[in-house]
């Protein structure tokens, strides 16, 4: 049973991943990403990580991809990208070589261990023990051993929120900073009007 689940989910994952990379339209890429995320969630379930699978679906598929789509629609950049050429000479060939190497080298390393990579056990708690659900196990670890790291991630999130607000905020001087931005006749934004008025008055004084 697990074999079947694995191969189906793996096929979905790989197809989605290739779809992300190869789609010309960003909207298609985003939708392909949902497929990959879903496949990974399935693989989590297959490995008894039920809580993470739920989180994966809710946060990634539910929140992050929606955020991507929202930004794409907001900015109206869902135009097809020309993938036939790369303006950077040699970039694509080098990228493919690097990608192959990044795939091949860990697999080769895995092969040298006889397909049985091992590592040191932290002894934080069992995964297979059905008496302790994985939610409880993760919660226990997060709030004991990793409590400090957890608190720091809260700070990280707060900083990210503030940073995102600062970055996305529309600066009243934004129009002045772009020298080659053509004045948009259709704009009804008061800010833009004021900015263009500023620009003309500056030209007048110059």
């Amino acid at each position: 049973m697990e074999t079947f689940v694995f191969f189906v989910a793996a096929a979905i994952c790989l197809a989605g991943a290739l779809g992300v990379v190869l789609s010309k339209n960003p909207v298609h890429s985003a939708l392909s990403l949902v497929g990959t995320l879903f496949g990974v969630a399935v693989l989590f379930v297959a490995q008894n990580a039920n809580f993470l699978a739920a989180v994966q679906v809710i946060i990634y598929a539910g929140a992050i991809v929606v955020l991507f789509l929202f930004v794409i629609m907001l900015l109206g950049v869902d135009r097809a990208e020309n993938l036939s050429v790369d303006p950077l000479v040699g970039q694509r060939a080098a990228a493919i070589v690097a990608g192959v190497a990044i795939f091949a080298l860990p697999v080769a390393a895995l092969a040298t261990t006889g397909w049985d990579a091992t590592g040191a056990i932290a002894n934080l708690g069992s995964v297979s023990d059905s008496a302790v659900p994985d939610v409880e196990g993760i919660g226990r670890v997060l709030f004991t051993r990793y409590i400090f790291a957890l608190e720091i991630t809260s700070i990280l999130l707060a900083i990210a929120v503030v940073g995102a607000v600062m970055l996305a905020k529309k600066s009243p001087k934004a129009a002045d900073m772009i020298v080659d931005l053509p004045a948009r006749p259709t704009s009804t934004d008061a800010d833009a009007d004021a900015a263009s008025a500023d620009a003309t008055s500056e030209e007048g004084t110059a």
Partner: peptide, 23 residues
């Protein structure tokens, strides 16, 4: 693990090839 390597390699290649920042 092999699957994860493949996913990672595809993602890395895509990052290097694609020009749309969202992608």
């Amino acid at each position: 693990l092999v699957l994860a390597s493949a996913l990672f390699a595809i993602g890395a290649t895509g990052l290097l090839v694609r020009r749309n920042p969202l992608v």
